Amino acid sequence: MIGLIEEFSLSTSLPWQVIAVRLLLATGLGGVLGFEREIAERPAGLRTHMMIALAAAVFAVIALEIIAMPAFSDDQIRTDPLRLVEAITAGVAFLAAGSILMRRGKVQGLTTGAGMWLAGACGLSAGLGLWPVALLSCLLGGLVLALVRRLETRVMPKPSERSVERSIKQSGDSGDDG
């Protein structure tokens, strides 16, 4: 039981507030880029960019934390934390790429791919005992997937909905009063 308590009390080299600000900033910056892409009606929009930016920030924080971990400070152990991050990123990216499909001229699966990439980052951080990184990135990713979709549908209707709105508007402007 003591070992379990010690496992969950592992602290990070960066204060959790710094980690939180970095992840929030990355999510916000991804949102800025994604919003522009959404307005331009590109397949990879708001949520996809937010997830990718968040995942990249999580991988970066994990690399910094690996370098500072006592388990890797022994002179007998050669560490290259970037190799770990590269390997997991490449593996998850391969899987995520498989979820992206092109059907009838429409790209599908980008947010799924970004979510898979973030899941890899959460898994890596949890596996290393970086609980604040894992929990916060999972929370932010969940908020992006659940809440931003609602925002997208309220603020930015899909192109098919815009076509219907234009058709209704045009039929109302035909000058036929009766």
Rank of each mutant, 00 (worst) to 15 (best):
G113S: 12
S13M: 07
D173S: 11
D75R: 14
V92A: 12
A44C: 06
G91T: 05
I88N: 12
G123P: 03
D80Q: 09
L140H: 07
A93W: 07
G34M: 13
R83L: 10
E38Y: 12
L84H: 15
Q108G: 08
L136D: 03
F59C: 02
S171G: 02
L143W: 06
R103Q: 14
L25D: 07
R104S: 15
V32D: 04
V148I: 13
I39E: 14
F8T: 01
K158R: 15
S174P: 04
R37S: 01
W117D: 05
V18C: 05
A97W: 05
Q17Y: 13
I77C: 09
I168L: 11
L143A: 14
A55L: 01
I62C: 08
E165K: 12
L46W: 08
V92T: 15
L4M: 09
I100R: 04
F72N: 08
L29C: 10
E152S: 08
L118G: 06
I77T: 12
L124Y: 07
T12L: 13
T12K: 03
A93G: 11
P159K: 08
L135C: 14
L101C: 07
S174C: 11
L151A: 12
M156C: 14
K106M: 12
V164C: 00
G115S: 10
A96G: 13
L24S: 07
L136K: 04
I77F: 15
H49N: 14
P15E: 04
P43F: 01
V155S: 01
D74I: 04
W16A: 13
S137L: 02
R78L: 08
D75P: 13
S99C: 09
P132Q: 13
A20N: 03
G178T: 11
S13T: 04
G141K: 01
L140P: 06
D177K: 11
D74R: 13
H49G: 10
